[in-house]
Design a protein around this nucleic acid. Structure first.
Lengths: 124, 124
DNA sequence: CCGCATCCGAGTGGATACTG
DNA sequence: CAGTATCCACTCGGATGCGG
């Protein structure tokens, strides 16, 4: 049996890592969902997610903007208001999230033998 | 329009978080794939993944065993040899990984407009 | 209201050496 | 071979305060 080429796997993993970087981490999904839900402004998003600090939120929003998951618009007026809205592209993530959710649910059954059924479909 | 219940989303996210915890992180997928490829022994796995230290590998393998992704068997003899083999359950992850990979590939196109096609399917 | 700067403690992970 | 132990550098993220 010939040794398989690990390098090829590594390169195949690059897109996987991209995706994990984008939705992984403690806050990214929570923030994204908050925006999907209709929260638009910085404070609004911050308040909707307990324990989230402004520093982290600020950084995450910047990342998400770079990844074209959200659009940032500064409204003129005073005091300044900023608006974050989800892109269509961001919505393609929902399928991925659903897949992760399903695997997680089955995994719990596998590990704990928990057969209780709850309606936990993602609602956005 | 009534305010949506963020709490429900949080509970729906729990299985998602489980999954991300299991395949997230710098090394987990690399190790899992290495074992899928047929690497069985501690040193073997370690050598197959550059820059991976014994401490981290040790910890990750323990996690993966707890999550029933791999089975650890100590072979009698001297010096001691240990064998790690993938479970059937672990293989259900392949579908998830493929989904992450596809999204990552499309994401790159979206961001960079890169239309180059490469055969990057995960091989295991 | 928006968001950056600073300080700071806890946890992560690398290198190395050592035991069974 | 299969790990554990120790030390240490570095990062991450929470708290707070300030400026636009």
């Amino acid at each position: 049996m010939k040794k398989k080429e690990h390098k090829e796997c590594m390169s195949a993993l690059l897109p996987v890592r991209d995706t994990l970087d984008i939705i992984g981490g403690k806050w990214k999904l929570l923030i994204l969902i908050s925006i999907w839900e209709g929260n638009k402004h910085f404070r609004e998003i911050e308040r909707s997610i307990p324990k989230l600090s402004t520093k982290v939120l600020s950084k995450e929003l910047k990342d998400m903007e770079e990844n074209q998951l959200i659009i940032r618009t500064v409204l003129n007026g005073f005091p300044v208001r900023t608006q974050y809205t989800p892109t269509e592209h961001s919505k393609t993530l929902k399928k991925v999230i659903l897949e992760l959710q399903n695997w997680g649910i089955n995994h719990r059954k596998e590990i704990f033998g928990d057969t209780s059924e709850k309606d936990n479909s993602i609602r956005v």
